[in-house]
Simulated scan of single mutants.
Amino acid sequence: MNKDQVKGRIEEVKGKVKEVAGKITDDKNLEVKGNIQKNSGKAQAGFGDLKNDLKKGS
């Protein structure tokens, strides 16, 4: 795993926790922020996956 994959997955988990906390506390703002952070983490992890695949292909 490269650093983009690791950081992305960490951000994904942190975002999911915020999203769930927002749902539990009925805090729509926190829920939205968590969702954005989760999706941003997914994108970063995907970028890391792509970099890893390209490195393996060479």
Rank of each mutant, 00 (worst) to 15 (best):
E11C: 11
I36Q: 06
E31A: 13
I24N: 03
Q37Y: 04
G15D: 00
V20G: 02
K18P: 09
V17E: 14
K33H: 13
D27S: 07
N39S: 07
V20Y: 03
K28W: 05
G15S: 08
I10D: 10
K28L: 05
K23L: 14
K18N: 14
D27P: 09
E12S: 09
V20I: 10
D26C: 07
K42C: 04
E31T: 09
V13H: 10
V17H: 07
G41A: 00
G41T: 02
G22Y: 03
N29T: 10
A43R: 09
S40F: 05
T25H: 03
V13R: 12
K33C: 09
G22P: 02
L30V: 01
K14P: 06
I36L: 08
E31Q: 15
S40Y: 01
L30A: 04
V20M: 04
N39P: 01
K33N: 14
Q44R: 08
A21V: 09
G34M: 06
K42H: 11
K33P: 09
I10L: 12
V32C: 04
N35R: 13
K38D: 04
K14Q: 15
K14N: 14
I36N: 02
I24K: 07
E31W: 12
E31P: 10
V20C: 03
G34Y: 01
N35M: 10
E31R: 14
S40E: 10
K16R: 14
K14W: 12
A43M: 07
Q44E: 13
G34Q: 06
K14E: 15
T25N: 11
G15C: 06
N39F: 00
K42I: 11
V20S: 05
E11H: 11
V13G: 08
K42L: 12
V13I: 15
V17G: 03
K14H: 12
K23G: 11
N29I: 01
K16G: 14
I10E: 13
K33I: 10
K18R: 12
K16S: 15
I36Y: 00
E19L: 01
K23A: 14
N29Q: 12
E19I: 04
N35C: 01
D27Y: 04
K42A: 13
N29R: 01
D26K: 13
V20Q: 04
V13F: 14
N39T: 02
K23W: 09
S40A: 10
G22W: 02
V13E: 12
A21Y: 13
K16P: 11
I24Y: 01
G22K: 02
V13Y: 11
E19C: 00
T25P: 06
V32Q: 13
N39E: 10
K14R: 14
K28E: 12
Q44P: 00
A43D: 08
N35E: 11
E31G: 08
E11M: 14
G34P: 05
K42G: 09
V20P: 00
I10G: 02
K38A: 01
E11R: 13
Q44H: 02
D27M: 08
E12M: 12
V32F: 00
K33R: 12
Q37I: 05
V17P: 07
V17F: 10
N29W: 00
L30E: 05
K18L: 15
K14T: 11
V32H: 05
A43E: 12
K23Q: 15
G41R: 01
E19V: 05
I36T: 12
D26Q: 13
N29Y: 04
V32R: 10
V13D: 10
E19A: 08
K38N: 02
N35Y: 08
E19K: 11
Q44T: 14
Q37W: 01
T25E: 08
E19R: 05
